[in-house]
Simulated assay, not measured.
Amino acid sequence: MAARNNKTQYGWMAIALHWLMAPAILGLFALGWWMRQLSYYDPWYRQGPELHKGIGILLLGLLLFRLLWKFLNPSPAAESGTPRWQAVAARLTHGLLYLLLLAIMTSGYLISTADGRTIDVFGWFSVPATIQGLPNQEDVAGQVHEILAWSLMALVALHALAALKHHFIDRDATLRKMLGMGARRIAAHTDHPSQDTLTTTK
């Protein structure tokens, strides 16, 4: 499998970026929700946020690289027979997912740097506080962060349901492309009937 996308399937780079980011996004949401339940004396009261921020910064780097890769490697065309409104809705959903992720990470950055402290990323490097001192910065950014995070989860659920619809109802190659099972393999399956099919038609 090539690294770059083509007209019919995703390259391994796009597939790897998708499946690296998907569990990280869900994990960060779960971690953020769990952190809100911790008491001040819980040992994870400080460790949880540090882990959340470190993974968040790394995820931001992956997101920026993914956007660059997407710009240089357009996604495969929609499956033939897909209604135009579905193709447009898919593009809008993907665009909104990227915008929400950027907005969530920006608000998280504003929360973490409101007091002027840098963000330490597992001792590997630090991200400086370039924006601070805004009115009620931590509280406002915190509220925005939470609202956007729940909005993202709703959109992720919609995205997953759409993928399952394509796979189980429409029976097209949309989901299989992102699993590395390219359209050519599906075409080969449909173009060459199985022995069982040939037997029943004799």
Rank of each mutant, 00 (worst) to 15 (best):
L175I: 03
K53F: 11
G11F: 01
K165H: 12
Y41S: 10
A78N: 05
P43H: 11
R84I: 12
A154L: 15
A78K: 02
D139V: 15
T113Y: 02
N73I: 04
W44K: 09
G142W: 08
S112W: 01
L164Q: 03
S126E: 15
P76N: 00
H166I: 01
A30G: 09
L161S: 08
A129V: 10
L155H: 07
M21L: 05
M178E: 00
K70C: 01
A3K: 01
E79N: 10
V121S: 14
L158K: 04
A160G: 07
T93D: 10
T200L: 15
R185V: 13
L64T: 15
V88D: 11
F29Y: 09
S126H: 14
Q132M: 14
G11R: 01
T174W: 00
P43N: 15
A16Y: 01
L96K: 05
T201R: 14
H18C: 08
A163M: 11
P23Q: 01
R117F: 02
I104A: 12
I25D: 02
A188N: 15
L31H: 03
A129H: 05
Y98I: 11
A2D: 07
I55K: 03
L155F: 10
M21Y: 08
A30T: 05
S112V: 06
Q9R: 13
D191N: 12
K70F: 04
S75W: 04
G108D: 00
A162H: 08
L164H: 00
D42K: 06
E79H: 08
H189E: 14
L96W: 02
T82Y: 06
A187Q: 14
K70V: 00
A30K: 02
A2V: 04
T106A: 15
D172R: 00
Y10N: 10
T200A: 11
L68Y: 07
T197M: 12
F122W: 14
S75P: 05
A89D: 10
V144N: 00
G180D: 06
Q9L: 02
S112L: 03
G48R: 07
M153W: 06
E146K: 06
L64V: 15
R84Q: 13
S39C: 09
S80T: 13
P49R: 05
G182N: 09
A24G: 04
L64K: 15
W34S: 03
A162R: 01
R4K: 14
Y109V: 05
L179D: 00
G11L: 06
K7Y: 13
G11T: 04
M35W: 11
E146D: 14
L148N: 03
A24N: 01
Y98M: 13
H192T: 14
A188P: 00
R66E: 06
A163H: 04
F71D: 06
A24F: 03
M181H: 11
A188F: 12
V144E: 03
G123W: 09
K7S: 13
L164P: 00
R36I: 03
P23T: 00
Q132E: 15
R36P: 01
K177W: 02
Q143E: 14
S151D: 07
S112T: 02
I55G: 06
Q195T: 12
V156H: 06
T200P: 09
Q132I: 09
L51N: 10
K202H: 14
A22V: 10
A187I: 13
R66D: 08
H167L: 08
W150E: 11
